[in-house]
């Protein structure tokens, strides 16, 4: 499963539906400019944004505003496509810690990230997903970042990496931690130095500060280099209630019947 580039509202969502159906999760990326409507005052935009529309008036930074609108449109369109419903029929809400979710719909979990002009959306029919994107060569080394971010084990492992690849490795670790932290709805509160990840050449696992693995195979972590310049990571949680055996025509969102 690789992140899939969505070129705009007119693009087909079949690949995303297929990814969610077969592997349980999908990661989508898109350019802000491809998802920015011409008219921010449009009624349909208000309908799609729902409660988020009120927030438009409070964001003063133009770049942040563009990104806010485009990201919500992308997320709701992608979720709607997978759920078989129009985006305005979904209500995007936020947990107290800021984590986005589809209100009343726990059959599909979502996550959102962005950097510069790129947006990333994660979708899963398992219990939880978190995604993060960062410029693969964003400067992190030498600013003291590694001390705030890495476990002792990771700091040591980082020293083993060839110098010119070291910053990139730190970016990878960063995005994995952000993805996990967002998946569990903790954001900033998550103490990055208490959870670590294994070096690149092994299957990515969650590690204790000393490098020993945290037991339990319910979490999977993946990183990709996207569009040649960006590091994207995803953390997916599948608690193994057997997953949802979603195949064929069974609707994601159950239909109401007269049964109790």
């Amino acid at each position: 499963m690789r992140p899939w580039l969505c070129r705009g509202p007119g693009a087909s969502w079949d690949p995303v539906r297929e990814q969610v159906r077969s592997s349980g999760a999908s990661v989508i990326y898109a350019a802000i400019s491809d998802w920015l409507p011409d008219d921010l005052g449009d009624d349909r935009l208000a309908a799609v944004l729902g409660r988020d529309h009120a927030r438009l008036g409070r964001i003063t930074k133009p770049q942040a505003l563009r990104r806010f609108v485009a990201s919500r449109l992308l997320l709701k369109s992608a979720a709607g496509a997978v759920l078989g419903t129009a985006p305005e029929e979904l209500e995007l809400a936020y947990k107290p810690g800021g984590r986005p979710y589809l209100r009343g719909i726990d059959q599909l979990d979502v996550s959102l990230s962005h950097t510069e002009e790129l947006l990333v959306v994660g979708l899963t029919r398992h219990s939880r997903i978190g995604v993060d994107i960062e410029l693969a060569d964003r400067r992190m080394l030498g600013l003291g970042t590694e001390r705030q971010v890495c476990t002792p084990y990771e700091l040591e492992a980082l020293q083993q990496v060839v110098e010119e690849l070291r910053n990139g490795e730190l970016v990878r670790l960063w995005t994995l931690k952000e993805a996990y932290s967002k998946a569990i709805g903790q954001g900033l509160r998550f103490r990055f130095t208490e959870f670590g990840f294994s070096p690149r050449d092994r299957q990515v696992q969650l590690l204790r500060p000393d490098g020993s693995p945290v037991a339990g195979g319910e979490w999977s972590f993946t990183s990709w280099l996207v569009a040649g310049r960006y590091m994207v990571s995803a953390a997916v949680h599948d608690p193994g209630f057997g997953g949802r055996p979603h195949t064929g025509d069974a609707p994601f969102v159950p239909r109401l019947s007269t049964a109790r």
Binding site: K61, M140, G187
Partner: peptide, 8 residues
């Protein structure tokens, strides 16, 4: 909302 600060 005003300064667009991110986590990095």
């Amino acid at each position: 909302d005003d300064l667009d600060v991110d986590s990095v």
